[in-house]
Design a protein around this nucleic acid. Sequence first.
RNA 1: AGCGAGGUGGGGAAGCCAGGUUAUCCCGGCGGGCUCAUAACCCGCAGAUCGGUGGUUCAAAUCCACCCCUCGCUACCA
Length: 559
Amino acid sequence: MAKWVVTSAWPYSSDIPHLGNLIGSVLSADVMARYFRMKGHSVIFVSGSDEHGTPVEIEAIRHKVPVKEFADANHVRIKKLFERWNISYDNYTRTESPVHVNFVINHFKEIYENGYIFEEDEPMHYCPKDDKILPDRFVEGICPNCGAPNARGDQCDSCGKPLDAVKLIDAHCAICNGPTEIRMTKQWYFDLPKLSKKVKQYILNNKELSENAASFSLSLIEEGLKPRSLTRDTQWGIPAPFSGAEGKTIYVWMEAVLGYVSAVIEYFEKKGDKEKWQEYWLDPATKTSFFIGKDNIPFHTIIFPSLLLTSKKDYTLPTVVSATEFLLFDGKKFSKSRRIGIWIDEALEILPVDYWRYSLLSIRPESGDVNFTYGTLEEKVNSELNDKIGNFVNRTLSAIKRFMGGKIAERPKLSQQGEGMVQQIGVRHDKIDELYEKFRIQRAVKLTLDQAEEGNAYLNATEPWKTFKSDPEKAYEALYVVARIAKALAVELYPIIPSTAEKIWAFLGMNGRLEDADWSEAKADFDYPLKIGKFHPLFMKIKKKEIIKKLKEIREKEG
RNA sequence: AGCGAGGUGGGGAAGCCAGGUUAUCCCGGCGGGCUCAUAACCCGCAGAUCGGUGGUUCAAAUCCACCCCUCGCUACCA
């Protein structure tokens, strides 16, 4: 038994997450949290809304509501959506939480006192009308490289080159379109170069980073780390606790990752056990896992460990950083502005949550970008979920009901072949287990599907609907075996599609909730007599056309 | 440009890091079986010179070099 802190990347709350966001972080983390719990580990699964920073402010202005109000509403919305997605968070909090804010302030004080933060003057664009110092992204002008008219301060979309915002020609504010002026402003920096060696050591010593995370991080370190700016001239954020930094806030990226710690603190505070968080974050035996998209790697392998290393406490450094590649939608990147993709609120209006969970997890982008299409969805749901898994469970239960009166009174004496089949269930289960231990979720889903396929093949080979007359013993054995496969399948499906797995558990007449069962139950015999419950088909087939039509209707309703 | 990822039968993927019997799986095509089950399930067949060239090796999809193609990132974008 181990202690695990499982975390998913904090969704940025200017918007609702889309399916790509979900599979990379939240959904993957949920699968592992559920798996770990079944294995009997102490799991604390946390995340929260990442709410600070200019994009949220801008969204709020667009919606014409105070930023705090906007953030509150969005946080609640996202939190509720995750509940509907069956994400089993122990604490889904937010960066506006007082626990987080206090923790961040104290934490940065420690780093400051330890001498890892320095200050420097920097020229920035200032908008006199909005009275705001503008982040590069919110300055527009003519690109000094290619002369394109609407280059943003951080990058020109025309020539693709990164820009120095100060060099933009005819710069204007992206919010009000007014002209900007250049002002010198003092900013505080986190001295990453000072940490290079330690961080490199950490990455080299850590064998459980996903491959893409490790190689990408090392190459960044080889190129040389640069000091990272820590402060922003905005109001919407956590006040920077450095002397002379009054009126400035901490850059969101630098504080949001600390939420991984503060969310655990908050979790135990709510339980009235204030000091217990230390048994997780300050115990080297605790394992921590982070589920993120590849765009997020440096923040978890370099910046977050550095923020922990430079404090005054001995924090557990990230054990597992599982970074997924991107999910593409119809060959293109998800894009809010172009409405490419499906968002997690829309998805639930279209299909039951387990259809999405299964489809997404079965194509989880683990070794390269993966394309999600309506065709993929149709294939996954119709052929795998419905035809293979759903139908296997249904035919197993129907056969037991029809040929055995819905009961298995006792364990039959098994033939050599039957014994072999039962053993094979365990062999496959162990393989699935191995894959989860390696965080190979996509492969684990595939092998789980194999259980159903083997069950189907076995039924066809043994034909209990024939033998139940000619050789009832044989039929009895076959039905026992497939019932055992169905039981294993329920356990193994639990991390992936928990509510369907619970259904199968109940259909089989198992005691208690699957949620409370142990992972090894997949290999265990039944309590006798086994009486199967009422059951019905688990899934229905879908039609691509109807999905597209429904999505269109939803969007028209939204306007 | 630099860095990174990928190019495997008609489509989609695994295998490659720890080289080795007939290259795996899903979808699709063709043929067959079964009729317990949601017109579902199962079996078999066809189809790949594993991006190209060269090298290492008894042996390469798998290691090395070069080249071609696709994509992502390049950090104040959260």
